[in-house]
């Protein structure tokens, strides 16, 4: 029958075209949403570096999604050799599942965060709603786009930055901060599961007045959509976001990829890796590279999770666990 032979032909053709290429070593990097473009370039650079250094051909595969969701997948058995996630708590969760030692964060410099970032506002060109700082976000008539803190790492940084801002205001306390952040989330129009989903909602679909975004994601949007459409607003206070990296011991020991996995992460700290990170608008930790790109990053006061929230485990428990403060203040649909 004609249809059958057609299908068979298609299938055979596809199988031939995609037949496996011999590879010396493969790595799976499970990462969060906005790092797609950075790791695409970094993986190529590392493959060249590894070829020159060890003589092996390294094939690096990527998986991207909301940071919390990705950690969940690794816990459920996604065979990640390395994870490069948005915040330490998501990797703590992997440690709690027994896949890596609990002191994983001490294994690499700078709390295992080769680059840092912060949270900024992305607004429409000309800033029609006059958004300058966090307190402009809670005004009525402002519609906000941010991902869901339950699944997205960037969203948790957004939330904590807003909370820290409210605490710093005259007479600020936990109760007022809760009221402030609750008001902010009542202005949220679309709650996507990952940072990239939020960006496309804001930039491509044109929904919302302001996107709470990773600094790197905001600059990338500016580059992709054109500086004639969007503007970046840096608030008076933001948060030092440290997206950490680690190898997954359980996986690399099983697959025999510890050496190359380790080298991959260390390459992130090398001048080449730092340079690439800076070019993708991540703040480099290497002092020399940071100095070179200092003009690219605006200076604003950055608080840390350790100082204001007593570390990620605590912040997670108080704010984002089931029944935590986020669950109390966020009512879907933005109504009370």
């Amino acid at each position: 029958m004609k249809l059958k032979s057609l299908l068979a032909g298609l299938l055979a053709g596809a199988l031939l075209a995609g037949s496996a290429v011999a590879a010396d070593v493969s790595l799976l990097n499970v990462s969060y949403d906005p790092t797609r473009e950075f790791y695409k370039e970094f993986d190529d650079a590392f493959a060249k570096h590894w070829k020159a250094k060890a003589g092996d051909t390294a094939i690096i595969r990527q998986s991207h999604g909301g940071s919390g969701k990705q950690a969940r997948a690794v816990i459920e058995g996604l065979q990640a050799d390395v994870v490069t996630l948005a915040l330490a708590y998501d990797i703590d969760a992997i440690a709690d599942a027994g896949l890596i030692p609990s002191e994983w964060q001490k294994r690499l410099p700078h709390n295992s965060s080769p680059y840092t970032s912060t949270i900024v506002f992305l607004v429409r060109k000309g800033n029609p709603k006059g958004i300058r700082d966090w307190n402009d976000l809670v005004k009525s008539g402002v519609s906000i786009v941010t991902p869901n803190p339950k699944t997205s790492g960037g969203a948790r940084w957004n939330y904590l930055a807003a909370w820290a801002y409210a605490l710093e205001q005259p007479g600020g306390n936990e109760g007022k901060a809760k009221e402030f952040v609750g008001q902010l989330y009542r202005n949220v129009k679309v709650l996507d599961s990952g940072a990239r989903g939020s960006t496309t909602t804001f930039v491509e679909r044109g929904i919302g007045d302001v996107l709470l975004a990773w600094e790197n994601e905001a600059y990338l949007s500016l580059k992709e959509a054109g500086a004639d459409k969007l503007e970046i607003v840096t608030p008076s206070l933001s948060i030092l976001a440290e997206p950490p990296v680690t190898i997954i011991d359980r996986v690399v020991d099983k697959r025999g990829t510890r050496k190359v996995g380790q080298a991959y992460l260390e390459y992130l700290y090398s001048p080449e890796g730092q340079e690439l990170a800076a070019r993708h608008f991540y703040r480099p930790t290497d002092a020399q590279v940071a100095a070179k790109y200092s003009k690219q990053f605006v200076k604003t006061r950055l608080i840390t999770v350790e100082k204001v929230f007593g570390g990620w485990r605590n912040a997670q428990k108080v704010h984002f666990s089931d029944g935590g403060i986020f669950d109390q203040i966020f009512v879907p649909g933005g109504k009370r």
Binding site: R61, Q62, H64, A73, L78
Partner: peptide, 14 residues
């Protein structure tokens, strides 16, 4: 899309 998305792991090329 939906069911496959949950079990896929979204590894490019794999």
């Amino acid at each position: 899309f939906g069911a496959v998305s949950v079990v896929s792991g979204h590894i490019r090329g794999q």
